[in-house]
Simulated scan of single mutants.
Amino acid sequence: MRLNHLNLCVGDLAEAKELFQNLFDFELEQQKGDAMLVMNDRCGFTLVLSNPKAFGGEAPVYPEGYHVGFIVDTPEEVDRFCDRLTDARMHDGTRPRNVRGGYSLYFTALGGILFEVTCFERKQVTAK
């Protein structure tokens, strides 16, 4: 069994679409107005982004520690992603670091959701 899709509630659908397209290379499959959109990562994972405000609800507030994680193959990919964040003016200056056996970058977006980009190589790397 493998996890193949997830519905993530966001307060701003346009911002979420831009983030997942431009930073994480997701592809838009379908959009239903301001309520929901469906994206894929071209590797078999489907991400549904929904806006509870479109159904009369409120913007979500996720608990501390909640996060969305991406695993990459090399520490250089983590560093390149950090550079992409800087280019997109979304970077707070925090550099990747060694955390729990991985080389990781953390940042917040979409109203406070924590994102992680990590490489789990066996050797620890020296942060830039």
Rank of each mutant, 00 (worst) to 15 (best):
I71E: 03
M1N: 11
M39N: 08
L114T: 06
V117G: 01
D34Y: 04
G11S: 06
F20N: 00
E29D: 15
F55V: 12
Q21F: 12
E64A: 14
K17P: 08
L6H: 09
C82A: 09
G102D: 03
L28C: 09
R97C: 10
F45T: 11
G112T: 10
D92N: 01
E116G: 04
F45E: 03
Y106L: 01
T86H: 08
L110S: 06
A127N: 09
R2G: 13
G11Q: 07
E121K: 03
R42V: 14
D73R: 13
T94N: 13
K53M: 14
G11T: 06
F26G: 07
G33M: 09
A16F: 14
R89V: 13
A14F: 06
F107D: 00
P96M: 04
L3S: 15
L23K: 02
M1H: 15
E77R: 08
F24D: 04
A35H: 05
C43V: 15
L8P: 11
N7P: 08
E15F: 06
L85A: 07
R2E: 13
P60I: 08
V72T: 11
R42I: 05
V72K: 05
M39K: 00
H91W: 07
A16E: 12
T118E: 01
F107E: 00
L8M: 11
C82E: 02
F81N: 00
G11H: 03
F20P: 03
V117A: 01
L13D: 04
V10G: 07
E29T: 14
N51F: 07
M39L: 13
H91M: 02
L28G: 03
Q30H: 11
G11I: 00
V72L: 03
G69R: 10
M36N: 03
L6D: 07
G56D: 13
L13G: 03
D87G: 05
